[in-house]
Nucleic acid binder design. Structure first.
Length: 275
DNA sequence: CCTATTCCCTGAAGGC
DNA sequence: TGCCTTCAGGGAATAG
């Protein structure tokens, strides 16, 4: 499932292949993929040149030279693939962008959870989805001063709060479990029970996990690959996610899996304590 | 303002 | 060519 490091890896693999390319044709096979008017999306994207590919948290930002940006969220299974091979297109290909070099930028999404929308590049900060995002790791806004009040005003469990993209953005279910293991916090600890030191540790661990994830090219837990079809390696560095029944790398206690806020949650019942 | 719940989707896996 | 249930889950919408 693409979280910030995976989306960043996609961004990098995409930019290397499509920056400067003109989109000569657009085909939307699954209209619900597009938030807003599909015909307008096709009209404005066709003929535009991809000037850059950016990212905000888990949102990809495909900037066009005509003043518009495609805001693309991969959700669970969305993936881009650049290929001139017709066999790269299948029943799960929901958007096909033909490029001026004969390649196609194909958006695939088995679960159809991903969404795209077109927005004025100059007004991205006013977009409803982007506007509500909290600070993301590795950014200058990701500071103790900014994060403490955002976290502490909640009395829900810390796992749910860290997954809330309006509190802080970029982390998903995998990396949240990893961060909480790193800082030795039980995922069901009420957020407002955290100490300043806990907050500081969460910030540092989030930065570190995102750094490691990006360096590893993301985590290929299920089907994740980047826009060149390559898997990441971060799944080999995970300590708790998907490790239920195996020994905690720190204390040897068996990792357990529970549900927190409806999400599968992995943690060490001995060294991650409730506060 | 806040929290909790439902919905969107399909394929893999497991039980019988 | 087995059928059915459960699970994976980010974010938007809705309910209370």
């Amino acid at each position: 499932m693409p979280e910030m490091p995976e989306v960043e890896t996609v961004r990098r693999s995409l930019i290397a292949q499509v920056k400067g390319r003109k989109i000569t044709h657009v085909e939307i096979r699954y209209p619900d993929l597009i938030t807003g008017d599909v015909d307008q999306f096709v009209e404005f994207v066709t003929g535009a040149t991809i000037s850059d590919v950016g990212r905000r948290a888990k949102f990809l930002l495909i900037h066009l030279d005509n003043g518009y940006t495609i805001i693309s969220h991969l959700r669970m299974e969305g993936k881009y693939r650049i290929s001139a091979d017709p066999s790269a297109i299948d029943k799960h290909s929901h958007a096909i962008f033909t490029l001026d070099n004969g390649q196609k930028m194909i958006y695939n999404d088995v679960r159809k959870f991903g969404r795209m929308q077109l927005w004025n590049t100059d007004e991205l900060s006013e977009n409803k989805s982007l506007k509500k995002l909290g600070p993301e790791p590795l950014s200058t806004e990701f500071t103790f001063q900014n994060l403490k009040p955002r976290i502490m005003r909640h009395h829900k469990d810390i796992k749910t709060v860290l997954l809330d993209q309006s509190v802080m953005s970029g982390l998903g279910n995998i990396y949240v479990d990893e961060v909480l293991w790193q800082v030795k916090l039980h995922p069901e600890t009420p957020a407002n029970h955290l100490s300043d030191e806990d907050i500081q540790k969460i910030i540092e661990a989030s930065n570190q996990e995102m750094d490691k994830g990006i360096a590893a090219g993301g985590s290929s837990i299920r089907t994740y690959v980047d826009a060149t079809g390559h898997k990441g390696n971060m799944q080999n560095n995970l300590k708790v996610y998907g490790k239920e029944g195996t020994p905690c790398p720190r204390c040897g206690t068996e990792i357990v899996k529970i549900k927190v806020g409806g999400r599968g949650t992995h943690f060490c019942p001995k060294c991650q304590v409730v506060k």
